[in-house]
Amino acid sequence: MTATKRITIKATRFDPDKDEKPRLQTYEIPFSDDSMVVLDALNYIKGHVDGSLSYRWSCRMGICGSCGMMVDGVPKLTCNAFLRDHWPRPITVEPLNNFPVIRDLVIDMDDFMHKLKAIKPWVIRKQPVPLGGGAFVQTTAQIDEFRQFSQCINCMLCYAACPVYGLNNEFLGPAAIALARRYNVDSRDEGLGQRLPVLADAEGVWECSFVGECSVVCPKGVDPAKAIQQTKLDTTMRFVLPFGNRD
């Protein structure tokens, strides 16, 4: 361990009450341990250099989804973006692209929260199923149909990587569509007909031009780009095929 190494962090600062627009502030901090991640650097700054730096974080194990930021221009979870991959170059940390900035590194993600609700992300049954009947039977193969789409941690990296969303915030977006598909292809769900109006809306799947970057940046191996194209295909088949399932 070399306790003398130092690393430069440039972090976005923005306080809507004081600043016209965001600016970068430079901090130099000790890089004391090879296990340190960008989030550790931010915590060091907040704890020991400048308590006014604001950002979100919690689990520091890549599952709560709150610490997503642009690290040198790439959307990443800062809890597993290692300093050693950048040192001795400085690291620029900015709020996620394509979202309004509330303060410093904190983005406004309410838009997603509304979209999430709009796609009805819950199991929809035509008839209520009593608990007394026990659990549904679902094979591992049936779970595999939706497994990867259920891994979304709502970290918003995909929205930050999506130029379509950047150009048009009305676009439903990668995570919301992936989660809709997660339910649509779940053998326990019967809500496809209720979700399609939202998914196949003009601002739904059709807006996606398959840049594919959402799937590249996803830290959890979800492939939203695939979910979107599959939804396009399924929807089209429902209308094009004469005996398409239109429930």
């Binding site: 819950w122 608990l131 659990a135 549904f136 094979t139 591992t140 326990r188």
Partner: peptide, 22 residues
């Protein structure tokens, strides 16, 4: 047990046995 089944009905992807039971 009731709560676990309730979670399943709400969509929790519990891991399964070969026969599809929880």
């Amino acid at each position: 047990p009731l709560e676990v089944v309730q979670m399943e009905h709400w969509g929790c992807p519990w891991s399964r046995n070969a026969d599809g039971t929880v």
